[in-house]
Design a protein around this nucleic acid. Structure first.
Lengths: 132, 132
DNA sequence: CAGCATCCGGCAGGATACTG
DNA sequence: CAGTATCCTGCCGGATGCTG
């Protein structure tokens, strides 16, 4: 399949089908990437994560962790102590995801200057009202 | 900066600050990645894009393109013909973004099986109500 | 053809209060 | 400590109708 006849129909077979959507369904929410990166140094407990992923609510942390756990990117380990203790850690799959993700993060960081410059010049040309 | 003293404070300096959020602000919305990928083959007109990025509304296409244009990832070229014609194309910056993005897309595609398996086993263990 | 304006529903996600 | 439960809000994004 995917074999195309002439040249016109090929394009978004890639775009729409190849899963840009699936990525975002996975790590495209507000917190997943931050959590994954924070766990790259090793296992952490719930409240440790909550402190480190600054700004996250415990509701969102719970939901994010559940989601990542469901996707097989994070393990959840409970200790039946009192008070209870729960460790979260990246799975091998989660660790492997770290590489392409880091490269994307690095790319954005390296190019953020150029992006900001583009934004500024765009914003200027869009609002040339008062003075030309 | 970023120099840390002892080992405890380093972690999410990376995660929260390094821009996982900035990425998603840029390409983390519903359509940006699809549009970028679709433009990787070359310039396209508005309605061509609309057809190729299947499922997108023209409102969202407009907004997405404006956003990408503002970020310097896409150029917009108007031809003052009747009827008007507008071409959209990736900038060099947009093209360079394609590489890390593609790797992430590829990673997800290559690992989607494992992810789906993880999801299924997670869903089973979470709902063991009727039969154990 | 390539859009902008408007209206509108759903849901991501924050705040808060309560539990084992 | 590590969550759940509930309420509430913004805003993302779809549908529709109108223009140069």
């Amino acid at each position: 399949m995917l074999s195309h006849h002439h040249s016109s129909e090929r394009r978004n077979v890639v775009a729409a089908r190849s899963g840009s959507r699936e990525i975002l369904d996975r790590v495209g929410d507000k917190w997943s990437l931050s959590v994954i990166e924070t766990l790259s140094d090793g296992a952490l407990r719930f409240n440790e994560l909550k402190k480190l992923v600054e700004g996250i609510s415990q509701r969102m942390l719970t939901l994010t962790l559940r989601h990542l756990e469901r996707d097989g990117l994070v393990t959840r380990t409970m200790f039946a102590t009192i008070p209870p203790r729960v460790d979260y850690a990246l799975t091998p799959l989660g660790f492997r995801l770290l590489k392409p993700v880091s490269e994307l993060v690095d790319w954005v960081r390296e190019n953020s200057d150029e992006i900001e410059k583009a934004q500024q010049s765009f914003d200027q040309q869009s609002v040339p009202q008062t003075a030309a």
